[in-house]
Design a protein around this nucleic acid. Structure first.
Ligand SMILES: Nc1nc2c(ncn2[C@H]2C[C@H](O)[C@@H](COP(=O)(O)OP(=O)(O)OP(=O)(O)O)O2)c(=O)[nH]1
Ligand SMILES: [Mg+2]
Ligand SMILES: [Mg+2]
Ligand SMILES: [Zn+2]
Length: 578
DNA sequence: GCCGTTTTCGGCCCGACTGTTTTCAGTCG
């Protein structure tokens, strides 16, 4: 069945082919933008097609809607086949070489018959590229360097890798350059996307040249890719690209707005300015006729001048935020300080690093009002999952802790295996003894979509199951989600009142932003869980909160924003067996 | 190819860096 993801991939391929073919940017840009909107659209294209509603997806017009309908009906898209046949298959790969765009690729193809990366490398080594107009020896050596780097380079980095590195760079630059007036992380990191193409940092300074000079000699710099008067790009030893942009302090608002993006968000914002006879760039919002600066020092002033509410960075993807900001309906998004307790963690009773007491101490130190201890269950034998007998021993230990009357109430929880055959790892009479049951999948990932969906839906229909843990099993940048119909899972969860977590570990972030948004729209309650296995892991909360913000979640959508009493009454809620 | 608070046709965001160029095209942010 044609998924939105699959259809989006086709239009991205068409966009690449058209770009290489020499089509105008507005045409291949239209396919690329349509692909992005289709991928993000909550309703499946199959549903939309059946109801002739495809064109309600932004950037999907008559032509693209017809192509989607054709693909759903026949499993083929004639236009894709045609453009594929018009472009040598290896040519599109050249788009991934930094420094190569449509014009140069066409020149290489027409003039010296290049049709692949291998062709290009050979021509570069033979010095046959320098003869082309607009290219010289420097172009050749740069391209050879880039091709070399291409092999080793990871395409996108998990946020859990990029965020700490970015924070180190910010500190290092502040320390090494006293004229840094303001500094912030921008780009996809400020928007908290789950993967990061590069690190973008914005600085305000009266002496940009000095800041850039200090930047390109920081200890983490392996290569300097570009170095001008207002910006520079470097490659770190850990293979991350960092772009630094420096502006005057008075321009900081316009600059961080620009550098935070997304590109699509910027383009829409600038088009809005344009329509009023203004122009927006990274320096200011300006009246075109007079050159009068309307706003530049803060993001808020620029949004307000355009009759928009300030938009949180996490929402700046041109996926509906402009409509909210224009009507004053930007939600009050969940914040880390709204979180009252933790509902998913492990101790050394299974695969956690801390004892129960040390885990409790950490929770108390962090001011949590409650903490659910959710060690693994017996079938996860590798990590000494709890048998019913050991669970009862742990309950006694927890009772003892609670009798001390500390500030953090400890709940008896479990992360319960959903076994490959769909049954649960404990019988109901054992489950009854827990305060909180998270049901998760850690085995049998390769089942087909229908089996997997039934397996999860079956688990959440058990009245003792309170939460579904990391429901898609994905590992950011490492493992795709298993096959599962999340729409069906979320509908069932909404029906039974079962919660579905956002696992905050940056290697998981599962649910992701899009699933969490769909869950909230259905009224599903969402805990944001660190799944801590050690003391530091409680810090991972910020990644989960950011994912919730990207999903547009308000505090009331999130289970662990509730106070202890409210949480306890939720746990005691009447549940309806299926 | 998409779209409409001037338009159903004519625009579609705006600027920095590099290399090759003698005035700027191409690429990228
Ligand atoms: N106005 C405008 N701004 C752009 C354009 N391309 C990029 N930007 C801005 C918005 C981006 O968020 C910001 C940083 O660019 P990046 O290429 O690093 O993109 P971003 O960080 O959003 O995503 P990434 O994870 O790095 O792929 O620069 C553009 O074509 N026009
Ligand atoms: Mg970036
Ligand atoms: Mg960048
Ligand atoms: Zn788990």
């Amino acid at each position: 069945m044609a998924s939105n993801h699959e259809v989006a991939a086709i239009f991205r391929e068409i966009a690449d082919l058209l770009e290489v073919k020499g089509e105008v940017v507005y045409k291949y840009g239209a396919y690329r933008e349509a692909a992005r909107q289709i991928e993000a659209y909550a309703t499946p294209v199959t549903t939309l097609a059946a109801e002739r509603r495809l064109r309600e997806i932004p950037r999907v017009g008559e032509a693209i809607a017809a192509k989607i309908a054709e693909y759903i009906k026949t499993g083929r898209m004639e236009y894709l086949d045609r453009v594929r046949s018009e472009v040598p298959p290896g040519l599109v790969d050249l788009l991934h070489v930094p420094g190569l765009g449509a014009k140069k690729i066409q020149a290489l193809h027409r003039a010296i018959g290049i049709t692949s990366l291998a062709d290009l490398e050979e021509a570069l080594r033979a010095g046959r590229v320098r003869d082309l107009p607009g290219m010289g020896e420097k172009t050749e050596s740069n391209l050879l360097d880039e091709i070399g780097r291409l092999r080793a380079r990871v395409q996108r980095h998990p946020i859990g890798i990029a965020r700490p590195e970015a924070e180190e760079v910010v500190d290092a630059l502040k320390a090494s350059c006293p004229t840094v007036h303001a500094i912030d992380i921008a780009g996809s990191l400020r928007r908290w996307r789950d993967t990061i193409g590069d690190i973008d940092i914005i600085v305000a300074s009266a002496t940009p040249i000095d800041v850039l000079a200090a930047f390109v000699v920081l200890p983490m710099v392996r290569d300097v890719l570009a170095h001008g008067d207002t910006k520079a790009s470097i490659l770190t030893f850990r293979d991350l690209q960092i772009d630094l942009r420096v502006v005057a302090p008075v321009e900081f608002g316009a600059a961080i707005l620009y550098f935070t993006g997304s590109k699509a968000h910027n383009v829409r914002l600038r088009a809005l300015a344009q329509r009023r006879g203004w122009t927006l760039n990274e320096y200011a919002l300006t009246e075109e006729a007079t050159g009068r600066v309307i706003a530049s020092e803060s993001e808020e002033a620029i949004y307000h001048a355009l009759d928009l509410a300030w938009i949180p960075p996490e929402l700046r993807e041109d996926l509906g935020e402009f409509e909210l900001a224009a009507s004053g309906d930007v939600p009050r998004l969940i914040e880390a300080s709204d979180i009252d307790g933790e509902l998913h963690c492990h101790t050394d009773w299974s695969d956690g690093h801390l004892t129960l007491d040390a885990t409790v101490a950490e929770a108390e130190r962090r001011g949590l009002r409650y903490l659910a201890i959710t060690d693994h269950s017996q079938s996860l034998a590798m990590v000494r999952g709890l048998t019913p007998e050991r669970a009862r021993l742990q309950w006694a230990a927890i009772d003892a802790v609670n009798r001390r009357g500390g500030p953090t109430r400890i709940l008896k929880g479990v992360e319960l295996e959903i076994l490959p055959n769909g049954s649960l790892d404990f019988p109901d009479d054992v489950l009854r003894g827990f305060d909180l049951v998270i049901a998760s999948i850690h085995s049998g990932f390769r089942q087909d979509r229908e089996t997997m969906t039934k397996r999860i839906v079956g688990a959440l229909r058990n009245p003792h199951v309170d939460v579904i843990g990391h429901p898609t099993g994905r590992r950011v940048g490492r493992r795709d989600p298993y096959e599962v119909d999340m729409n069906a899972v979320l509908r069932a969860a909404a029906e039974t009142g079962t919660a579905v977590e956002i696992n905050a570990n940056p290697e998981r972030l599962d649910m992701d932003d899009a699933h969490a948004r769909a869950a909230a729209a259905l009224g599903v309650t969402i805990p944001i869980n660190t799944d801590a296995h050690g003391a530091d892991n409680f810090d991972l909360l910020r990644y989960g909160v950011a994912t919730g913000r990207r999903a547009g979640l308000r505090p009331e959508n999130v289970l662990n924003t509730r106070g202890l009493d409210e949480l306890l009454s939720w746990l005691a809620r009447p549940t309806t067996p299926a």
